[in-house]
Write a protein that binds this DNA or RNA. Structure first.
Lengths: 340, 340
DNA sequence: TACAAAATCGAAAACGTTTTCGGTAAAATC
DNA sequence: GATTTTACCGAAAACGTTTTCGATTTTGTA
């Protein structure tokens, strides 16, 4: 019951393993007759090349690695889906690992993938990652790697991102345009680039509109949870009764805040307007529905793989890979948590 | 800049490749001195075994395949997380593919995984799957496979499931206990086992409570979407004004229904009570929060891998694998979409 | 000192594939 | 008919590891 090998085919046909291999791969130096013979027998015997042997010989596995901070997450699972669907089209499989927003784990997972000798790597950085030697090490070894969403600007590899600053600016501007006079910001952890950029976009929008930037209106959270949103909502109500608009770093926290405001009979958007970020599915289901920035996860996954694929091909042809930065469009989705 | 091999270590140490290999793997027939020497050099040279070669030689890749119907899905992504976290502990990596609820695709993906020679397979069946030859073929080849959540009862492989019928019974009983007199059911597609079981649980609860089972109160949907929930809500209002309770096959559809009822000023739970299924995160955030059945996704993923791992070990020892059915506990989560 | 037992090592085969390179036979050219 | 060209095939090496089995050396025993 052993799987059939090239040798099996060669022996029953009375030819060499070499010829069988060449016939199956369409080499020109094998006659039409034997080629047909080989292909037919391979078909009937249901021959499948031993992937392990092919890997060893060709030094590639047609497998890529993917590291994300968190799997159970609407945005990231959309990215995963985009990556897998695109990879499949090109004959690549995807191994997924999770960093749990931990730098140490991220390093370990990267190591695992390198030891498994994946052909390339896709990664979205953990919040805790401030040192990037583990990334540059991989680049130095010539292994293609592309970052998406949560990136590091200093690293000279390809990246697929959105313009977080611009998107945050748009979101804040929308609050201003709909009449908000005092706008707070719930921002994410200090380290990640997109948390920084969203904050900067918020700040710039205020200043461009001649509004004062008040640091005490910026609430920083490390965990992006529903509960954090509830807590910050309570905090706002006790500390800053004059706030009439909030730009929240991520939908989940915004939804927590909405839930708490609902509980306290604060009227949204009349008393306080809210804009989120990401456009989770949930955002359209909540009452009031959440105005937010649409972040194209599926598209981002697709693009990330496409870029990686280009680099894989370039590497095969021994060409240099020129890092590319791909910026995807975001869009403000107006719903009922802001005024008209 | 080639990666270092056993040969490299052997040559610089003036010993054979064999001894180096044995030293690193702790064979007893190598002296403490050379063992120490080898290990030290391997360490400083940062030697990593070539996974491709190891795979070929040992005929295993320490990799398993996972096929799920849909990645962007709260329950399934929880399962994925459970599987990956458990697999990692045992040194296994996970390749994920998606069947998109299509039988044809499921078959193709299974084929892909077999050609990649993964050590084992974890699968949750697509809705469209009615024929199981692709599954039994794999079992006949002696490759360990375990199903979870969406399973086929006739197949004699290990499974990790919940008691859908019991859970649905509990959900329906809760509607009855809280005073509902006429209870509708939004059920999923006809084929999958858990859709059938949930329906049967619903029906049995009615009959056990001397209520009439009315087939016209069972609404069948193929796509489990938010929009379907909205549509069915409208249908109920126009076709059956006497309905005062609904047991919905899955939270997403229930939330769609709630949204529509809210829009039409139907009071939940006073006018109509609703129970969902799965306990998506979203269910606690919506207004009113949704009473539902908690389905332990993470736990299910963990258990599925654990069982697969047992079978992988059994296979290595050439022992027979005895299929096992693992049933996980569900729990009714009472919230505000049902009365007290 | 002689011999048995234990400790230590390495040659070689094997896993299945890909690819280079040389060789033979057939066809084409003169 | 001799020579060149083309078509077709296969031997062999290589990828890096694991493991069997025999060989050698060292230690222990009488």
């Amino acid at each position: 019951m052993k799987p059939v090998t090239l040798k099996d085919i060669a022996e029953t046909l009375g030819i060499s393993v070499t010829t069988v291999s060449k016939a199956l791969k369409g080499y020109p130096d094998v006659s039409k007759k034997t080629r047909a013979l080989v292909k037919e027998l391979a078909e009937t015997l249901n021959y499948k090349p031993n992937a392990f042997a092919v890997n060893l010989r060709t030094e590639e596995s047609k497998t890529i690695g993917l590291i994300i901070p968190e799997i159970v997450h609407h945005f990231f699972s959309s990215v995963i889906k985009g990556i897998i669907s695109q990879a499949e089209k090109k004959g690549y499989l995807v191994i997924i690992l999770q960093s749990n927003e931990s730098y140490a784990l991220e390093k370990k997972q990267l190591d695992l993938l390198m030891n498994k000798r994946v052909d390339g790597i896709l990664i979205s950085l953990a919040n805790g990652t401030a040192d990037f030697k583990h990334i540059t090490d991989i680049m130095d070894q010539g292994k293609p790697i592309v970052m998406f969403d949560k990136i590091a600007k200093i690293i000279k590899c390809s990246k697929v991102i959105i313009d977080d600053r611009k998107a945050a600016y748009t979101a804040t501007q929308h609050l201003i345009d709909t009449g908000c006079k005092r706008i707070a910001h719930f921002r994410g952890p200090l380290l990640p680039q997109n948390s920084i950029d969203r904050f900067l976009g918020y700040k710039k929008a205020l200043l461009d509109n001649n509004m004062t930037y008040d640091p005490s209106l910026v609430y920083i959270f490390d965990d992006m949870t529903f509960e954090v949103g509830e807590m910050f909502a309570r905090k706002i109500l006790s500390e800053h009764t004059d706030v009439d608009g909030i730009f929240v770093n991520t939908d989940l926290v915004a939804i927590g805040a909405i839930t708490e405001f609902n509980r306290q009979d604060i009227k949204i958007p009349e008393d306080i307007s809210i804009v989120g970020f990401s456009n989770w599915f949930m955002s359209s289901a909540i009452t009031p529905s959440l105005t937010t920035i649409n972040q194209p996860g599926f598209e981002m996954g697709k693009m990330a793989f496409k870029q990686l694929y280009k680099e894989l091909k370039a590497k095969k042809k021994k060409k240099d890979i020129v890092p590319k930065i791909i910026e995807l469009e975001t869009k403000l989705v107006k719903r009922n948590s802001t005024r008209f």
